[in-house]
Design a protein around this nucleic acid. Structure first.
Lengths: 360, 360
DNA sequence: GTTTTGGCTGTTACCGCTAACAGTATCGAC
DNA sequence: GTCGATACTGTTAGCGGTAACAGCCAAAAC
């Protein structure tokens, strides 16, 4: 039991593992990093030593020695708070695993010049790659500025991948289709849509999915009540008012995110309509508002945290490849979504009376 | 222009700065870390070299060499998403500056055993200190478990600091008092309160501030309509229903957080009441719901990000002190809050007619 | 048998920074 | 003039890993 050296944290190091396993530190390093060229028996011995000491590598030493990316930027703008916090949790987890730091900054302005300016300012922090969650993933000024700086970028939830780009998304088209089918199968025929922000490709994809589902059920999408929204609660209020003011108001409303769906519920209640008895309302994203309003929203779950992690992974891979000169070009990862049915959707009143009448 | 060494990132190092400034690397290090014992002229020369090269220290090398804390835990449980994301942004910024990593984990369960178990599991990740934002800052099972493990802890928004504890908070009592005064000065006399979660000291402090303000305006707090809430939107709905069902409903409602205030607005609308003409509704925290509902909420701004940063700072200081054996004992930091007046508060109907009548 | 090949492992030299300690210069005190 | 004390600055030796390269050895090729 030798006295630990000067600054030792008393933590388990790769040397300790090497000693126990009877190999060199380098071999342990190889095992940790999953390199091949290590005999199976050796690998097993090392692994056992690692488990025995419950060793975990020091990320600081690791990134220092390997000279890997240490700072990854995350530029965000005011998505819903719920979306952001989930996204941050995922990105953080990925950053911890990779041993890199997240430099996060808000870019709330909408003007092209301000955005470009903010991006340039951001780049002075020496980040080696940038993650752009929506809505900034669609911001041309920012993307151009990053391209000029030759910084690798990964966009999240961008529908139309750029050339040479990294992107993580879900299949918005299919998701919207499934949700619309859910409403149609409940018996709804007049289904309204509150679209998302018009410049977001995700909105366009969701609207396409909506139309496609209607068509496959023999309904002309041209007749469907559709209102423009902007992903904000406020825009949801306006759109819902318009939908309900129509001569033939819809019996179900599909809002392109949960914030707008929550707004729709609020308007419905204000007009004395019960959800889902009088009107079904469904959302998209499965963020906090989906479960804080009453009734809880039927919605599409996006794996937001996982998307953030995937984005970070993709980005780090690209940074490494650029360093070693082995670019593999654009990459896109599409993650799984799922339909979450809660209490805000049900059969329309027009189809329920039949059941009532069927009673003796 | 010598060829850079093997793994060089081509980035500016402390050596480059030292060369330009004509001193040793150690002196540069001293300047960076703000140590005294550096002559002013030397310090200036170094600073100039730093600026000239726009040098920024490599955090990995720094934490490796200094052996400082590298992993700080953040255990959270379902506060409002808005609160969490702001908190994370602040904590992240602090972590980046300090060059440490944030290990964050959710602990949603409410049971004491599950919380203790989750805490123990969390501790296997070798974090050197833990940040507890509300509501976990009040969780006895977690605090006990951390105390057993002898891990430094900083609580956020805990009203009653434990012995030997680090805590960051705002002055909830004064803030609630100011908010209540605001309503009273608008002319309200029947002001209702929706309390926060009963076990949170912050709730108790806010209720105390509320009562104190009433008293100083000659109103008996015992007569004030007060309902219990739990900081959730749902609980706000119930509490508001009760308040408005009273024989003499309040003309103003002070909800102890924004989520409940948003719920109050929603109920008021459902009952056909206009805000603030028929009823004033104010919140607390200034999180996202405050500005997503209509009308926007008058509320108290808590500097959530700054609180997170302060918490991290306090914690790291403590970790360092423990290492060097110079404990300074408990520390608390109280940050400034501010009253944000928006559209959800106004004079009560009963006091407005007088103004109308005063017209010719 | 010798050479080559390729899989596996160890050695060395760092990555960029800082703790600890070892000077060196300056100044006042004796 | 010598001696401490004080203020400043430099040197050395790591922190805990990994890149690059140098072996070593058995199997394959000549």
């Amino acid at each position: 039991m030798s006295r630990p050296s000067r600054r030792s944290r008393g933590s388990v190091t790769i040397e300790d593992v090497a000693r126990i396993a009877g190999v060199s530190a380098m071999t342990v390093s190889r095992v940790i990093n999953g390199e091949k060229n290590v005999r199976d028996t050796t690998r097993a011995a090392v692994q056992e030593a690692i488990d025995q000491l419950s060793y975990s590598p020091n990320t600081a030493a690791r990134s220092l020695a390997a000279g890997q990316a240490t700072h990854i930027g995350l530029l965000y703008a005011n998505p819903s708070a719920a979306y952001l916090s989930q996204f941050l949790v995922g990105a953080l987890e990925g950053a911890r695993r990779a041993g890199c730091h997240l430099v996060i900054e808000a870019c709330e302005s909408e003007g092209a010049d301000e955005q470009a300016e903010a991006t340039r300012r951001f780049l002075t922090t020496n980040v080696e790659g940038v993650i752009l969650p929506p809505p900034l993933s669609e911001s041309q000024p920012i993307l151009s500025e990053l391209e000029i700086a030759q910084i690798p970028v990964v966009t999240v939830a961008m529908g139309r991948p750029r050339d040479n780009a990294l992107n993580v998304r879900i299949d918005d088209f299919s998701a919207a289709q499934e949700m619309t089918n859910h409403l149609l199968e409940l018996g709804h025929r007049r289904v309204g849509l509150i679209k998302g922000h018009p410049t977001h490709i995700a909105s366009i994809e969701r609207a396409r999915g909506f139309r496609s589902a209607l068509e496959s059920h023999g309904i002309d999408p041209e007749d469907a009540p559709i209102e423009q929204g902007y992903f904000t609660f406020r825009s949801g209020l306006v759109a819902t008012e318009r939908l309900l003011a129509r001569p033939e108001p819809p019996t179900a409303i599909f809002a392109c995110n949960d914030d707008m769906a929550a707004a729709a519920v609020s308007v419905a209640h204000r007009k004395g309509l019960n959800v889902p008895q009088d009107i079904s309302i469904v959302g998209f994203d499965d963020t906090a508002p989906a479960t804080t309003v009453w009734p809880e929203l039927t919605t599409v779950r996006q794996p937001i945290s996982a998307m953030a992690e995937a984005a970070l992974e993709l980005l780090l891979e690209d940074v490494r490849e650029r360093r070693s000169g082995t670019r593999t070009g654009p990459a896109e990862r599409v993650l799984e979504h799922s339909l979450i049915v809660r209490e805000s959707s049900g059969s329309p009143a027009s189809s329920r009376p039949r059941i009532v009448r069927a009673k003796p």
